[in-house]
């Protein structure tokens, strides 16, 4: 038999959870990935949500369902692409030529001019549009944290879907621009290797298409890095002071009366309420 009980309705729980999840979520990092050097910046905002208490008489599982949560934001990936690892070497003449110098009776080999391909940096902003997400939570055992008791919810992971096609086109456009700019540095070279430029770009496109799926997975992994809804991350649904003031001090000799919460338990009832039961010390 508990010393006291607190009942929280679905509407009350909705307010508590909305406060718990509302706010920006950010992550930043970088790493090397094949011919790419990736740098990412994730910014998401989670808001809204309506709580439902599933019937606790159903088989074991989530006991709190938060529906109509809105997730939106941006993932900005900065991709550094080493063109030298992707594009073929381009030299004029294609290979070194040696010519005899009759007067001296020997030969010399003339130099080549070879294009040096750089590493280019491409910004890939991925807009995560407002997505309605339903989240299922488990109520974790309450625990004491200093002067307060906390009730946390552990959520189950979810997935996001997004379209990277515009970003891939942006990558190709940027790469084409860089290739043309570099070749443009060679004085009026157009007549000589214009035809080769298309070959180079087509080669690049094939490579980009090959890794298209990998880029998608990569960006998705970046979003997952935020890990906001991992079961290992607890949402603080609410907290309760461990020292409950029952009667204030009435004057000299009439001290304040407090009750100390020694234990706290939480469960969802068939009345669709979250019931907290306390034992006082």
């Amino acid at each position: 038999m508990s010393d006291a009980t607190i009942a929280i309705s679905e509407a009350g729980m909705t307010t508590l959870l909305q406060r718990a999840i509302d706010g920006p979520l950010a992550a930043h990092g970088s790493g090397a990935w094949g011919p790419f050097i990736a740098d990412y910046d994730v910014s998401l905002r989670i808001s809204g949500g309506i709580v439902q208490f599933p019937d606790p008489s159903l088989p074991p599982g989530p006991v709190v369902r938060l529906s109509e949560v809105v997730v939106q934001g941006t993932v900005v990936g900065s991709i550094g692409l080493d063109l030298a690892r992707v594009l073929p070497q381009l030299c004029i003449p294609p290979f070194q030529v040696c010519v005899p110098i009759d007067f001296w009776g020997d030969q010399v080999c003339t130099p080549q001019y070879c294009v040096t391909w750089p590493t280019i940096s491409i910004q890939i902003p991925v807009i995560v549009p407002p997505i309605g997400v339903s989240l299922d939570f488990a109520i974790l055992p309450p625990y004491q944290d200093g002067d307060v008791w906390r009730v946390d919810l552990g959520a189950y992971p979810f997935s996001l879907n997004f379209d990277l096609t515009p970003s891939i086109n942006a990558i190709l456009d940027k790469a084409k621009q860089v290739v043309h700019d570099i070749l443009g540095q060679i004085p009026l070279i157009g007549d000589l290797i214009d035809g080769l430029v298309d070959t180079v770009i087509n080669g690049l496109k094939a490579v980009i298409n090959t890794i298209l799926g990998a880029i998608h997975d990569f960006i998705e992994a970046l979003i997952r890095l935020v890990d906001v809804f991992s079961p290992t991350i607890h949402f603080h649904a609410f907290k309760l002071s461990a020292n409950q003031k029952i009667l204030p001090a009435g004057g000299p000799g009439d001290r304040e009366v407090d009750l100390i919460i020694a234990a706290l338990a939480a469960q969802v009832t068939t009345d669709k309420e979250l019931l907290l039961t306390t034992d006082f010390a």
Binding site: P94, V97, V99, P100, T110, I193, G195
Partner: peptide
């Protein structure tokens, strides 16, 4: 012509 020829030997 495309592709370019091998460089001619001109001295």
């Amino acid at each position: 012509p495309v592709p370019p020829p091998h460089a001619a030997k001109n001295v």
